[in-house]
Computed example of a mutant assay.
Amino acid sequence: MYSKTNIFYIILIGVIILFNIDSAPSYYGSYHDDHHHQHYDRDHGAYSYSPHGTAQCFSGDSLIKLSNGVYKEIGNLQSGDEIITIDQSKIISTEMIMMLDKEISKEALFYTLRTDSGNEISLTEYHLIPIINPNGNENYLFAKQIKIGDYLLVLFNEKLNYSPVINITIEMKKGYYAPLTMKGTLLINNVLASCFANINNHHLAQYYMAPFRYYYQFGRFISLYDPFNINKTEGLYWTVNIMLYLARYFRLDALCL
């Protein structure tokens, strides 16, 4: 009943947003070029583009805390699950919408960040994660940009804390998932992370995902509890693939592929 024809409207709205460049938000931290939006390599002190596409996800062994206090493996998340996240220094709940990308059996290279609080999070290299910069503000960086001593936001003993990264390992892991939530963020093993990868601006990505949020809310309104069929879909979700294809032509400056 609700086939790909209905999801066509996601693409339509997405294209409208894509061309509405002047109204798109522009938030850039100290590690991004305000003019070119390029990737800043803190190892070499230079801006560069990555020529290859990468996975866009968290590792399959990640745990997600639901608003009822129960932990769920990331691969078992369902559309409509109420999960915990952090918004403006407050612990809140947000709804799981869909999986932007999902691979159960494939392997990927992950950056595993361990904090002084004992929390760990594994992300692919171009997945965004916020740190607290010296001014006390959030600044979203790619996982590969994180350095020892950078402060991550963690949930520790049911309270929000800032904890420094004390160890970084790069390892292959099997299975990866990219959940999309209403807020665009979520807690992975009680560490705050963005839902987005391969784009150099978290806020811009959240803006472009508006069609998915609208379609999800409409589906829930008419009692369609899994409008994106997340249990049947594996790989990069097809509408996301189309949006990335369009972005390569019209907003390449915002991508890191």
Rank of each mutant, 00 (worst) to 15 (best):
L141N: 02
F218C: 02
H44W: 06
S67Q: 06
D34K: 15
T124L: 07
F250M: 06
A254T: 11
H203K: 09
M98I: 04
F8A: 08
K183G: 06
D43G: 00
T124Q: 05
I64T: 03
I132P: 01
S3A: 12
G175Y: 05
M99V: 03
A254F: 07
S89K: 13
P211W: 06
T5A: 09
D87A: 13
I16G: 07
D22P: 12
L66E: 10
I84F: 05
I131Y: 02
F8Y: 13
L204E: 07
E158A: 15
V15Q: 00
M99S: 01
L186T: 02
L152T: 03
R220E: 14
C57Y: 00
S59P: 04
Y28K: 08
I10K: 00
M98F: 09
Y2W: 04
N190Q: 12
Y111V: 06
K72L: 11
Q145A: 09
I121K: 04
H37R: 11
H203L: 09
Q206F: 12
D116C: 05
M1P: 12
N201L: 10
G14D: 01
Y71T: 13
F218I: 10
Q145N: 15
A205K: 07
I74S: 03
Q217H: 11
Y214T: 12
L155P: 00
N133M: 01
I64H: 03
R251S: 12
N231A: 06
I7V: 09
S26K: 04
Y208R: 04
G60W: 02
Q145M: 10
R42G: 03
T185W: 08
H37L: 09
G60F: 06
K144W: 02
E171D: 14
L77Q: 05
E73P: 13
L187F: 09
S93N: 13
L255E: 15
D33Q: 03
